[in-house]
Simulated assay, not measured.
Amino acid sequence: MSAVRLLVLGVMRLRQPTYGYAVRRELLSWRAETWTNVKPGSIYHALKQLTQEGKLSARGTEGSSEGPGRTMFELTEEGEVEFRKLMDEALVSIDMEELGAAIAFMDALPRAHVIEKLREQRRRSEETRTSLLAMIPNFPGRYETPHTPDLLELWSSVFGNLAGWTDGLLERLESGEYRMSD
């Protein structure tokens, strides 16, 4: 799944009808380039691809005194379905870009649904951590392999931290923090 795809659909959902540069400007205001691989070209590519797939529809061109007209886009019903599908996938993901994109839009979903998905994400993080730690004894000593035990400890720590961070977010959601769709 592409985090950029989810980000574009999410911004379109918030700001529609809107045009590509406004989507780009919105993501730049969030500093999305610091926590995801979103680039201007990937935003415009996603807009084109999503329009070809029927997830967005072009709603005409708005004139501009500063250059060519701007194509206005809106989310279609298929786009809403795609947004929700990508949200569900990203909320359980252990990929930081995907999860980050989902967290940015988690308020678009019902609280109980987000909690359920984040519990699954937390379980996956902990399982990944446990399986990485279990691999360490199967490798020779630290100085006999290309630092494989060190890498496994690094990655297991990352997933342990992700599980701990998710616990905190779950606590905040369960206590009623954040405005959600319901």
Rank of each mutant, 00 (worst) to 15 (best):
I136R: 10
F159C: 01
H147A: 14
I136V: 14
A163K: 08
L152H: 00
L169D: 07
P146E: 09
S156P: 02
G168I: 06
H147M: 12
L152D: 01
L151C: 00
I136A: 07
L170R: 07
T166D: 04
T166L: 15
E153V: 03
P137M: 05
D150C: 01
A163C: 02
W155G: 00
Y143F: 05
S157Y: 09
A163W: 03
A163P: 01
G141L: 12
W155R: 01
N138T: 15
T148F: 09
N161S: 08
Y143Q: 05
D167Y: 12
L151Y: 00
L170Y: 11
L152A: 00
F159L: 02
L170M: 11
S157T: 14
F159E: 01
G168E: 13
L169N: 03
L170S: 09
L154A: 02
F139I: 11
R142G: 11
F159S: 01
R172A: 13
G168K: 14
P137V: 05
L170I: 10
R142S: 11
S156T: 04
L170C: 09
F159Y: 14
D167Q: 15
L169E: 08
E171M: 12
W155E: 03
W155C: 00
N161F: 02
W155F: 04
F139L: 12
R172H: 12
R142Y: 09
I136P: 06
T166Q: 13
L169S: 10
L162M: 12
R142W: 07
G164Q: 14
P149L: 04
E174G: 02
F159R: 00
P140L: 07
N161M: 04
E144N: 05
E171T: 14
T145Y: 13
